[in-house]
Each structure stands twice: as structure tokens, then as C-alpha cells.
């Protein structure tokens, strides 16, 4: 490879830059976790070890409620987005149909669109739609759980579809044909051949969708109702008022949730890589 011709100073600089990058990426997260156990009332000051702030979370009914909303939104939107995203991935990779190109382009937009634009779109849409429903049926709908789920699905279908498509593209199409030659009907071929093969991609897509749903602040802030707010939106409003030791503790819990999901996806990729290796041997 390379590296042989690199001068010692350059090599040293490269090495220390890389160490600094890793430190830069991890120090804030680690310090946050450390300070969440600090006994001081001032959030950035060390005042002895305590778990008081975590204990307080269990008594905070507002936080409990928003955690509940977040989890329910994430689960419902992930299930819907995973099913719809997988279906569109299969359709786009395996079939030709009228409107395919338009659909393909439409599925790229949510990935590149800025959060703020997406938020504005959803807010305007629901305002208009609710006015229309009120006019036609006299139903006074309001923003809340359903509008959050609908918005999260709207951006997550695209992400799931991209991940699953990557998996299908790397898959051997002749396996499905072999199943058909062996008199499997379409459903059987899908159930016993295609689905097990794309399963890691589907799972990976679902993990991404759940992460994005739990992460989202901007879109949710626009479409949440007064009664139903997700944890990130609530925490965001708290942080704007100022930092508190309780926010440190909530943040660490959110951090742990996302780290669990990352660990899941890394383990998934590893399992995939191992299976790929044993298959090729």
C-alpha cells in the first residue's frame, strides 16, 4: 500500500490529527455522561457523585409522558414505514411499471430536503387538510399523535427504501428464478427465498427509521399538538430555557437509547459479513 514514502513528521501529524478527531467526537458525549452524575446544581460544575437527577426523572410525570409518546410514535411509524419502504424497494428493483421514474425521484426528495422545509410542508398540509375536513364534514380535527406519525412515515419510507434497495441490488436474482423453476408460486418464492435474503436490509432500514423518528425535533415541533409532544421536542424547549442537571440525565438516557440502536445495527452488519464469508467459502 502507501505510507512508505511519507515523511516521519507528516506521519506524526496524521496520527495526532486522527487522535484529536476521535477525542473531539467522543469527549463531549463522555463529559455529558460524567456531569449527569454531578451533585452540583450548576450543570457544568462537578460537585461529587450523585444519582439524584436520574431519580428525579422517575418522578417527573411530564417527562414520563413524553417518553411514552416518543416510543409509541417511533414504533408505529417504523412499522408502517418499514412495510411501505420494503414494498417500494421491491417494486423499484424488481419490476418495470408506469410512473417508476417519478416514484423513484419522489423517494429521493425526503432524504435531501432540509428538515425545516419538510416541517413547513407538513404544517401547511395539515392546516389545509383540517380546514377542508371541517368544511366538508364538520369535523374539528387537531394536530397530535396521528399527525406526528404521518409525518415521520413520510420521511422514513424513503430511508427504509434506500437501505432495502441496496440489499436487493446485491442479491442474486437467479435464486428467485430457481425457486420459480422448482414450482414455487410467487408468494412462496417471496416468503421462502426473497424475504430471508433481504431480511437484514429490512431490519437495518427499520433500525434507521426508529433512530430518525426518535431523533426528530424540527418536523415534530411543527406537527405536534398541545397534548402530545415527543421527548426531543420537550427537551428542546427545556434547553432553550437553560441547562439543568435533569436535562443532563435525560440526555444520557436518550444517548443510551441511540447507542443501543447503533449496537444493534453494527451487530447486524457483522452477522451479515460473517454469513457472507461462510457462504462464499
Amino acid at each position: 500500500m502507501s505510507g512508505r514514502s511519507i515523511a516521519p513528521t507528516t506521519r506524526w501529524l496524521l496520527r495526532s490529527n486522527s487522535a484529536l478527531v476521535i477525542a473531539f467526537l467522543y469527549a463531549p458525549i463522555i463529559l455529558l455522561a460524567v456531569y449527569s452524575f454531578s451533585g452540583s446544581r450548576i450543570p457544568g460544575e462537578w460537585g461529587g457523585f450523585t444519582t439524584e437527577w436520574y431519580a428525579r426523572l422517575f418522578d417527573d410525570s411530564r417527562i414520563q409522558k413524553t417518553i411514552g409518546v416518543s416510543v409509541r410514535v417511533a414504533l408505529v411509524s417504523t412499522v408502517i414505514a418499514t412495510v411501505l419502504g420494503t414494498m417500494s424497494a421491491l417494486a423499484l428493483e424488481r419490476f418495470k411499471f408506469r410512473g417508476r421514474r417519478v416514484f423513484d425521484a419522489l423517494l429521493y426528495l425526503p432524504i435531501i430536503i432540509p428538515d425545516v422545509t419538510m416541517a413547513v410542508m407538513m404544517l401547511m398540509f395539515f392546516t389545509q387538510a383540517f380546514d377542508l375536513v371541517d368544511l366538508l364534514f364538520g369535523l374539528g380535527l387537531s394536530k397530535g399523535f396521528a399527525t406526528i406519525v404521518v409525518s415521520h412515515v413520510a420521511f422514513n419510507i424513503a430511508f427504509v427504501s434506500v437501505v432495502v434497495r441496496a440489499r436487493i441490488a446485491g442479491m442474486d436474482a437467479t435464486l428467485e428464478q430457481a425457486a420459480a423453476d422448482l414450482y414455487a408460486n410467487r408468494w412462496q418464492a417471496f416468503r421462502y427465498v426473497t424475504l430471508p435474503l433481504i431480511a437484514p436490509g429490512v431490519l437495518g432500514g427499520a433500525l434507521l427509521a426508529i433512530t430518525l423518528s426518535l431523533d426528530d425535533v424540527v418536523v415534530t415541533q411543527f406537527v405536534a399538538g398541545p397534548g402530545s409532544t415527543t421527548l426531543p421536542v420537550y427537551v428542546f424547549s427545556l434547553i432553550r430555557k437553560g441547562v439543568t442537571p435533569t436535562i443532563n440525565a435525560v440526555s444520557v438516557i436518550m444517548l443510551l437509547a441511540s447507542l443501543t440502536l447503533v449496537a444493534g445495527s453494527v451487530a447486524l452488519q457483522r452477522a451479515q459479513a460473517v454469513r457472507g464469508r461462510t457462504n462464499s467459502e
Binding site: L31, P43, D215, V235, S258
Partner: peptide
């Protein structure tokens, strides 16, 4: 992959006066 809001909050904590 970790929560975007938390990553921003961490800097708010690090940079706060007296932090």
C-alpha cells in the same frame, strides 16, 4: 447515529459559563 439534540446539548454544557 447518536441523538442529534443530545450532541448539541453536550456542547451547550461544555461551553456554558462556569462549565
Amino acid at each position: 447515529w447518536t441523538n442529534f439534540l443530545v450532541r448539541n446539548y453536550a456542547w451547550r454544557l461544555l461551553l456554558s459559563s462556569g462549565g
